[in-house]
């Protein structure tokens, strides 16, 4: 009889442990495959990779380096000073990788969109991502996003679309790539430091 009682207690404890574990695992908002697929469709349709995936020279000309999918300007690609220095009909220039852009705003480098916690969007929330696109400021509160990021067009997307894009970005391979910070135009106040 005592064995039966112990068994009942053990079973109860096991059940509680499993139930808690199950509920916790379900508590994490894992996006559905449908949402991720929708996000992939959108990312490919609006061309995020055109700037956020570095380009390389392939047998048929420039092509996206898919081993660096959406990882932004390569940290080891140090750019020389921009050739455009005077105002005129040529407003800007861009790197062969399509990840560094120079213009009146200075020099911008496309960011690492992979889920890497140190160098990418790993510690961003869905809310941070949507706020960024809606406001044109990092996480909705930080520095301005810079050209050529077309956030004024993307901000018209629905929340559902932006959530899908974020879900897809969370699903892609993590790449550690510390993109340099933007460089302000020469002569701008506070440029010294």
């Amino acid at each position: 009889m005592r064995h039966v009682g112990r068994l009942a207690v053990a079973l109860s404890v096991s059940f509680v442990i499993l139930a808690v574990g199950f509920s916790l695992s379900n508590g994490q908002d894992k996006p559905s495959k449908k949402l991720v697929n929708r996000g992939e469709y959108l990312v490919k349709s609006v061309g995020c990779g055109d700037c956020h995936t570095p380009w390389k020279m392939g047998p048929k000309g420039p092509e996206q380096d898919m081993s660096r999918l959406l990882s932004g300007h390569p940290q080891d690609m140090v750019m020389p000073a921009s050739p455009i220095s005077a105002p005129g009909p040529w407003m800007g220039s861009f790197a062969s990788s399509f990840t560094a852009w120079s213009g009146p705003w200075g020099v911008s480098f496309t960011r690492n969109l992979t889920p890497d916690k140190e160098t990418g969007l790993g510690d961003w929330t869905e809310q941070n991502f949507i706020a960024t696109i809606r406001t044109g400021k990092r996480m909705g509160k930080g520095r301005d996003l810079l050209p050529p990021m077309p956030w004024p067009a993307f901000k018209n997307m629905t929340d559902e679309d932006l959530k899908a894009i974020f879900a897809y970005l969370r699903s892609i391979p993590t790449i550690k790539n510390n993109v340099p910070e933007p460089i302000p135009p020469a002569g701008q106040a506070g440029n010294a430091k």
Binding site: G142, D144, E181, G190, K193
Partner: peptide, 18 residues
């Protein structure tokens, strides 16, 4: 907080002088 490089400074808005 010692910087007023607009892409680096903190706070990121509301101030232009250290």
């Amino acid at each position: 907080m010692s910087s007023r490089n607009p892409y680096r400074q903190m706070p990121p808005l509301g101030t232009k002088i250290v």
